[in-house]
């Protein structure tokens, strides 16, 4: 039996098992590191950069960096939260995030994280992109306006459902979510509303049809408490939001 190894997160010791990432260890210890593309059930993607922390003086993604004994990790500092707010603002201007008409409002990790970072304005000039919705599937709506390219649906469909329904296409600013079929229509795939991929989206892209306001505004996931409280142990993200 080796002694429990620890690193420090904002000055407090966090134990970890060898092989755990900083994110996994923090989550297991009930500590919140902001994140969008990370999910405990799937391989880290490391793309949203919201979980960027300063480890031994260097900026690293907490979801991909392995915890090391004695590592000094800064997480909720004004500097890092400020950078996170800027990342969120860029996500908000790049898509069409019109919360007042979104069924995900109150259950949305993007929105909850922006609240947590105190984002009062998108700050930058809005893109207002033209992204038609895909309403072809009888049970599920795809509203690409809200996509933040976290690729959780891509991973869930590929790794949990074994279907490969979704993919990211294009590069750089032209990156976008596609349906992996010649027609590009969700209805033409073997996607089912019971798939893991149907219930993994942290924002309002993949939504069940005919389920509007089943839970009223004010009684949704992040209404009683902020993401930093709701999203720590137990680490189940999406089920209770549905």
């Amino acid at each position: 039996m080796s002694e429990t190894q620890t690193f420090s997160l904002d000055g407090e010791d966090v134990p970890f098992a060898p092989g755990q990432t900083v994110m996994q260890a923090a989550q297991a210890a009930g500590r919140w590191i902001p994140h969008l593309c990370w999910h405990p059930d799937f391989e880290a993607h490391g793309s949203c950069k919201l979980c960027t922390v300063r480890a031994n003086g260097r900026l690293v993604a907490a979801c991909t960096v392995a915890a090391q004994p004695g590592m000094a990790v800064e997480n909720r500092t004004p500097d890092l939260d400020g950078r996170r707010q800027t990342l969120l603002q860029m996500l908000f201007v790049e898509g069409n995030h019109f919360c007042p008409s979104c069924e995900k409002s109150g259950n949305c990790l993007l929105q909850a994280t922006a609240y947590e970072m105190g984002m009062m304005t998108p700050h930058f000039d809005m893109f207002y992109p033209d992204r038609p919705v895909d309403a072809s599937h009888p049970e599920t709506l795809l509203d690409f306006n809200r996509c933040i390219l976290c690729a959780l649906c891509v991973r869930a469909s590929r790794d949990a459902d074994g279907k490969n329904v979704f993919a990211l296409s294009g590069r750089g600013i032209r990156s976008h979510l596609i349906v992996n079929h010649e027609s590009g229509r969700l209805a033409d795939t073997d996607f089912a509303a019971t798939d893991r991929a149907a219930n993994i989206c942290p924002v309002g892209v993949i939504l069940p049809k005919r389920r509007g306001f089943a839970v009223p505004i004010g009684r949704r996931k992040y209404d009683p408490a902020p993401a930093s409280v709701v999203d720590v142990v137990p680490v189940k993200h999406e089920e209770e939001a549905r």
């Binding site: 919360c99 979104c102 409002s105 109150g106 929105q111 922006a114 105190g118 009062m120 505004i217 408490a225």
Partner: peptide, 9 residues
């Protein structure tokens, strides 16, 4: 604005 007062919707 603390939690509960900051809303986008």
């Amino acid at each position: 604005l603390a939690h509960g007062l900051l809303h986008y919707d």
